[in-house]
């Protein structure tokens, strides 16, 4: 499986990372080296092997479905690059 520049551009866009057109060939080459390395996994016989879900066999704990925390709007907004009137502010989303 070889990655061309248009696939690299598509992946970058899915990952929401802007990549200059000029950098796409090098990025595609990096992807191909890393994926080439990963291709070895194709040699392994995985017939009948379950995919790992949890490295330690454990049942996730359950808890009461109740509110245990909250009421800290100031703290939650404290690190926002742009917060106004109790909200996170972002560029216009709807025309």
């Amino acid at each position: 499986m070889s990655i061309d520049e248009s696939t690299a551009a598509k992946v970058a866009s899915l990952a929401r990372i802007r990549v200059d057109e000029a950098d796409l060939p090098a990025l595609a080459a990096d992807f191909n080296r890393i994926l080439g390395f990963i291709e070895q996994l194709g040699e392994v016989d995985i017939e009948g092997v379950e995919p790992m879900v949890s490295v330690t066999p454990m049942r996730l704990k359950r808890r009461e479905d109740v509110v245990t925390d909250g009421g800290m709007q100031d703290k939650i907004l404290a690190n926002a690059p742009d917060a106004r009137e109790g909200f996170f502010a972002v560029p216009k989303v709807v025309e």
Partner: peptide
Amino acid sequence: MIGTYVLSAGFYDAYYNRARRV
């Protein structure tokens, strides 16, 4: 981006699920 690629539709089984089996 590698992570995005191995989880993308069409490659999820070939990469991610295979890796979880290994």
